[in-house]
């Protein structure tokens, strides 16, 4: 499923913190701290691991979502595709609520399920 060399370039940006385009470490740390009241201290290396992990995560989620887009013979990746990808992939189970419930009930789908259309 994964293309060869998927991780081959992953260390290229390591010079200079973790690279010019990597995700911001301070932001990662804030999100980590926010994930629980009892999160006390965070090693400086933990956000660095996350900066790369999030890249892998985004890539994988995008890849699965795009597969859904392709199944629907479309060219635009929609939120529904992300929702379908989450539903179809075990390790994304923790995202099910996030992608299936509309964040604003008054906005797009009062019924609560807005992820099937087209």
């Amino acid at each position: 499923m994964r293309q060869p060399g998927m991780y081959s370039g992953m260390l290229s940006g390591i010079s200079g913190k973790t690279g010019p385009h990597s995700l911001p470490l301070a932001r990662i740390k804030k999100i980590m701290k926010k994930s629980g009241d009892d999160v006390k201290m965070i090693s400086g290396e933990a956000p660095i691991v996350f900066s790369k992990a999030c890249e892998l995560f985004i890539e994988e989620l995008t890849r699965q979502s795009w597969a859904m887009t392709m199944q629907g013979r479309r060219r635009t990746l929609h939120k529904d595709d992300v929702a379908s990808a989450v539903a179809a992939t075990d390790i994304f189970d923790f995202l099910v609520n996030l992608v299936s419930e509309p964040p604003n009930a008054d906005e797009d789908a009062p019924g609560g399920t807005n992820n099937i259309e087209h």
Binding site: S35, G36, C54, F57, S65, T76, L77, V86, L98, V99
Partner: peptide
């Protein structure tokens, strides 16, 4: 990086992925 060049991404998909990343960090950190 993953998508073909002709691919388009809707705004809500971008936001959803953005939210998913934060959720992922929280999930693992927890």
């Amino acid at each position: 990086r993953i998508l073909p060049t002709h691919a388009k991404i809707s705004d809500d998909a971008k936001e959803t992925i953005q939210e998913c990343v934060s959720e992922y960090i929280s999930f693992i950190t927890g």
